[in-house]
Design a protein around this nucleic acid. Structure first.
Length: 606
DNA sequence: TGAAAATGTCATGGG
DNA sequence: TTCCCATGACATTTT
């Protein structure tokens, strides 16, 4: 509290200083309200109003989720949450649909009343004219009306609210400024409110999906921060659990039909010890999500946030990053989870994570992530190889269960010939028909990369497929020389490189072929135009020739009509013709017995 | 479910 | 000779 008072005091001093500066700068045309302390106070109040509104929204959503989850139960066969059938003694009317239960949850008793009271209190406390504005961070949750929260999360019940949230305005009414200075002094809040969206995007070194909601890595952190701010009683484990709510909402964003409470739910089941973790906050969030990811197969955008916040943290590898698949990859991750193992009774795996220790076995994994992005940027054939493609397959690689079929067969993949065209057992288990029921099958590139990556993982290749494929020859040789690889590893690396290179070459070849086809088609068009032009020219020439012949005939007849022999008789054009010699002189040549007359020197020069 | 398109892979030849 | 690339042909997957 002393610190808060100091903050207030310093703020007052700052504002006074700004006032003085304004007086000095007023001549420069600066508006008064820019430096007006009252105006700033008003803005503060506006922001507080937004804060409280968001808080109410969050609470409402939690209540909604809570009520919804009360009506749901996990279908162990499908892994989906389905409306809970009425118990033996039906407490509700039969046939209660999901929407009905949601509506019921909204209209239920005291909760909404608490918010109404809260709203009223807020309206009395903050008679602010505009409430529609929301900060960037605050806006995001409001856009997700379908936010889903964990049933186990410490959702702020109405009973908790007076101490945590709702009592805040009441208690602070005499000294609102001080109370809000407390809030504003929280670094998380300041970070959130001051963090431009683009900064968060920049710190996230890989492109996210087109979904703008996914492109806001600050959003998960924001929710965590919200919990920290508005629930002072929140424990570390609560924070973790709340942080897990964010991906659930993302899950809903991507796949609204699939209940999104699985991660939190499953997390509590599988990782109960996680609440005991007491390390740093970000690390907790990250590891918890990583574990959640491994246990439930649903990556968490929280990790993205953690990645962006602590991009240099050596605590996670790119294998972890592979699992951070927004958008489509979420579904695919779940798909892999539930569909690659149809034998599993539960759609959500609760098996152990045998590869968790092995994830660090890949020393160069951190490079792979960037390399993949470079590949997408530079590889001519990777224009369509979007981010959503990379992550699912990488997740599949990282998914411990994806290896189960291969290992369960007792036939290690390294025993397969590298150049074989047959499909690996792991691939068959993952891609052969039936298992894919919820989502479309993976793309071919996913299959291939997954194949190579799985093989590389199986043979413990210490570098990534992209490194193998895309490194220049010298670098590749240097890399190979730095690692002692056995024959199988060398063969696999060579095959991967050859296949990758040939794949790009084939893509380039096809691209060139298409370009050639397009070029030839263009050339054909131009040639056809040339042909048409020539045909027209020919026709015109024929017309001209015909006209000239007619003119020649007329001139011929005219000349003959003027010619007279010695007796003054005219020559008949039928008996004589006019011929021109090489020297330009024109002769009258008889048509009949020309030779004879020629021999008799009867040629008559004109 | 079959056809067409797209893509991956292998074999081969040339630089 | 080896490596790399281009490309035809075939297989497989996707649409």
């Amino acid at each position: 509290m002393m610190m808060d008072m100091e903050v207030m005091h310093s703020n007052q001093q700052d504002m006074d200083l700004i006032d003085i500066l304004w007086k000095q700068d007023i001549d420069l045309g600066a508006r008064r309200e820019v430096f007006d302390y009252n105006h700033r106070q008003k803005e503060y109040e506006l922001q507080r109003q937004r804060e409280l509104e968001e808080e109410k929204k969050l609470h409402l959503l939690r209540e909604q989720e809570k009520a919804l989850l009360a009506q749901l139960q996990l279908d162990e066969e499908t892994g989906e949450y389905i409306p809970r059938p009425p118990p033996s003694a039906p407490l509700q009317p039969t046939g209660t649909s999901l929407e009905v239960t949601q509506n019921v949850s909204f209209t239920e008793t005291g909760d909404s009343m608490s918010f109404d009271e809260c709203l009223q209190l807020l309206a009395e406390t903050f008679p602010v004219e505009g409430t529609e504005n929301a900060s960037v961070c605050m806006d995001t949750p409001a856009t997700h009306s379908n936010i889903m929260m964990s049933p186990e999360q410490p959702a702020l019940s109405p009973a908790d609210l007076p101490s945590a949230q709702l009592a805040l305005p009441q208690r602070m009414t005499p000294d609102l400024e001080q109370a809000w200075m407390e809030l504003w002094s929280l670094p998380e809040l300041q970070q959130c409110l001051n963090m431009p969206m683009k900064d968060t995007m920049e710190t996230t070194s890989y492109p996210l999906s087109n979904n703008p909601e996914v492109q806001s890595p600050s959003y998960p952190n924001y929710l965590q921060m919200q919990t920290l701010i508005f629930n002072p009683m929140t424990t570390v484990s609560d924070v973790k659990t709340n942080s897990l709510n964010v991906p659930t909402e993302f899950m809903n964003t991507f796949e609204g039909s699939v209940p999104s409470v699985a991660p939190s739910h499953n997390f509590r089941e599988v990782k109960p010890e996680a609440s005991q973790l007491n390390s740093s906050f970000s690390a907790d969030v990250f590891y918890l999500n990583t574990e959640l990811e491994e246990s439930s197969g649903q990556p968490s955008p929280d990790i993205i946030e953690s990645t962006s916040d602590a991009s240099n943290k050596p605590t996670y590898t790119s294998m972890d990053l592979y699992s951070l698949s927004p958008g489509e990859s979420f579904d695919k991750s779940k798909q892999n989870l539930t569909e690659e193992h149809p034998d599993s009774d539960s759609g959500i795996s609760i098996q152990g994570s045998p590869n968790s220790p092995s994830k660090s076995a890949y020393g160069g994994e951190s490079f792979r992530y960037d390399s993949e992005m470079e590949d997408m940027d530079h590889s001519p054939g990777s224009a369509e190889s979007e981010y959503s493609e990379i992550f699912p397959l990488n997740y599949q690689l990282d998914n411990p269960e994806s290896e189960v079929p291969a290992s369960s067969t007792g036939e290690p993949e390294q025993e397969k010939k590298p150049k074989q065209h047959t499909v690996d057992p792991a691939e068959k288990s993952g891609h052969s028909g039936a298992p894919f029921t919820k989502d479309k099958p993976k793309r071919r590139s996913d299959v291939r990369l997954s194949r190579d990556e799985q093989k590389a993982k199986t043979l413990k290749i210490p570098f990534t497929v992209d490194m193998i494929i895309n490194l220049p020859v010298d670098d590749f040789n240097e890399l190979m020389s730095k690692h002692q690889l056995n024959e199988a590893q060398l063969a696999l690396v060579r095959d991967i490189r050859r296949r990758g290179k040939n794949k790009v070459a084939a893509q380039n070849c096809r691209k060139r072929k298409m370009e050639n086809i397009v070029g030839l088609e263009g050339e054909l068009d131009s040639l056809n135009e040339e042909k048409e032009r020539l045909l027209k020219e020919k026709s015109k020439n024929m017309t001209d020739l015909k006209e000239m012949k007619q003119q020649l005939t007329s001139l011929y007849q005219e000349v003959f009509s003027l010619l007279r022999d010695e007796q003054g008789n005219s020559y008949s054009p039928l008996e004589y013709s006019l011929q021109q010699s090489t020297d330009g002189s024109v002769f009258l040549v008889p048509r009949i017995k020309k030779t004879f007359r020629s021999e008799d020197n009867h040629l008559s020069p004109l």
